[in-house]
Design a protein around this nucleic acid. Structure first.
Length: 476
RNA sequence: GGCGACGUAGCCAAGUGGUAAGGCAAUGGUUUGCAAAACCAUCAUGCAUCGGUUCAAAUCCGAUCGUCGCCUCCA
């Protein structure tokens, strides 16, 4: 049974979807007004991995992740650059999707855009207005928090909390400081849509409610996002959705922890955020290490915990991954030309059982609130055993089974099953030529030449490995 | 001020009552022309500190110290 930590209940509970065998997941996507920083990678990788494990466990999953393509930040940025909001959002959505693809994040089942669901949002706001929960002021349409008794149940905040009054923007027109915008009237020059209340644009929170409503009938099994979203964003989503339908909106709220960044000057850790001017862009991180290593680094910590970012951590992720790929390549060489197909039917031994135990342990780790560090430990233990099996000449059927098991686990974790090669494809033939020359030199005991070839290639990032009678290479 | 999280080896990080996983780094050995990879061995009598509960605590309770997050756009 899969156990899920629910932010609202603040404890783990068995995952029991509304419809047995099927899970509806909604994960808050990005506001596309700039390039992705590494903070965007965590929820995407975490919830993608959760989705993969649910499917590995035999559940079907509808995975929805939205794109917020209209918002104050988008308007401001578009004005700065002198382009339309649509052009800006389109550009950064493309960038987001390509960055996520590099990280092995699968496309969601549905990727709804806010601007394509204005009608649904208006219908929702109308419904709230009819129930007397929304009211209109000269600036927009607001949600009346005092009309929703459960307000604050997710974050543990109360509407009469006097401390919030110091913080929340004071607006004389609002009935309560915590009332939030459902619809904002447009100022001249801003993008706008017609509505029963006047031209304007939707508030930030309404899109997730409207789109969950459209695609999942206001009933989500899992709703995920970054920990910062639980208040006010998710709190407000609950208010809108449950006030509208009168039924429970989300069964399990899941929030990933934050990434913090070590400051370069001294050892001070400070929060990563664009407002602080120390964003670490994803494309910068990809310069330091492969996307797979970045994913490895994220999965090396439990998703709810804090994650400290230092570029060198990506390097160790790379080294860890190498251990896995070295093993997989060793098994593949061991299986020979017949490969997995030929090996699979063969005679199995004790190691076969180890593989089954490993799969069981892997599932147990992931079933326990998606404990990816524990799951990775299981993978490494199997890697060690598989290495021994290959060197001790275990049955090929067993080794093939280990290979398939590790492949399956890498698949759940969303890591590539083959070592990512970032060297140019054209380089391959030249490296092979150099290896041939070096092999000749070694036969002639010309070690000065053979070592020069190996060292010089290493300096270029190509590492040669002499195995029994064969030389292979990997890109570093 | 309100709410919450965390403090486990040189580094990263699981473990929430039964005697400290895993990875990176490091050291010795086997192997190798030398390397690399792999394998074997070593690497926390101790889990921020101090008390308490218990047959038993990293795990539960209390206090202290320290770090961080949310409360405002943020993944």
């Amino acid at each position: 049974m899969i156990q899920v930590y629910n932010t609202e209940a603040r404890k783990k509970a068995p995952l029991e979807p509304v419809v047995p065998g099927h899970v509806n997941m909604y994960v808050c996507g990005p506001t596309v007004y700039d390039s992705c920083h590494i903070g965007h990678a965590r929820p995407a990788v975490v919830f993608d991995t959760i989705r993969r494990h649910l499917e590995y466990s035999g559940l079907s999953v509808t995975f929805i992740s939205n794109i917020t393509d209209i918002d104050d930040k988008i308007i401001n940025r578009a004005n700065e650059l002198g382009i339309t909001c649509k052009a800006l959002a389109g550009r950064y959505q493309d960038e987001y999707e390509s960055d996520m693809a590099r990280l092995g994040v699968r496309s969601p089942t549905i990727r709804p855009k806010a601007t394509e669901h204005i009608g649904e949002m208006i219908d929702l706001i109308k419904g709230l207005e009819e129930k007397g929960i929304a009211y209109v002021t000269p600036r927009g349409v607001w949600f009346d928090v005092s009309k929703f008794a459960d307000y604050g149940k997710l974050s543990g905040r109360k509407t009469d909390d006097e401390n919030t009054e110091h913080r929340v923007e004071q607006d004389q027109e609002k009935k309560n400081p915590q009332d939030f915008a459902l619809w904002k009237f447009s100022k001249p020059g801003e993008p706008e849509w017609d509505s029963p209340w006047g031209k304007g644009r939707p508030g930030w929170h309404i899109e997730c409610s409207a789109m969950s409503g459209k695609y999942c009938d206001f009933q989500l099994d899992i709703h995920g996002g970054g920990a910062d979203l639980s208040f006010p964003h998710h709190e407000n989503e609950i208010a809108q959705s449950e006030a509208y339908t009168g039924k429970q909106f989300v069964k399990y709220w899941m929030h990933n922890g934050f990434i913090t960044v070590g400051k370069d000057d001294d050892d001070e850790e400070i929060k990563m955020g664009k407002s602080k001017g120390n964003a670490f862009w994803l494309h910068d991180a990809f310069e330091v290490a492969s996307p797979a290593a970045l994913r490895m680094w994220i999965l090396g910590t439990h998703y709810r915990g804090p994650l400290l970012y230092k570029p060198e951590f990506l390097k160790t992720g790379e080294n860890s991954l190498d251990r896995i790929y070295n093993c997989l390549e060793a098994i593949t060489r061991y299986l020979g030309e017949g490969g997995i197909k030929e090996a699979v039917g063969g005679e199995t031994g004790a190691f076969s059982e180890e593989c089954e135990n490993a799969d069981k342990a892997f599932r147990e780790a992931m079933d326990d609130d998606f404990n990816t560090p524990q799951a990775l430990a299981v993978v490494y233990e199997l890697v060690g055993k598989a290495n021994s099996a290959v060197t001790s000449g275990a049955s090929k059927a067993d080794c093939a089974k280990a290979l398939l098991t590790i492949h399956a686990h890498l698949g759940v974790l969303g890591l590539p099953v083959e070592r990512p090669k970032d060297g140019g494809a054209g380089a391959d033939q030249f490296i092979k030529l150099l290896i041939e020359i070096r092999t000749e030199a070694r036969k002639n005991k010309d070690f000065a030449l053979s070592d020069k070839i190996r060292d010089d290639l290493a300096a270029m990032g190509v590492v040669l490995n002499d195995r029994s009678g064969e030389t292979t290479w990997t890109a570093k």
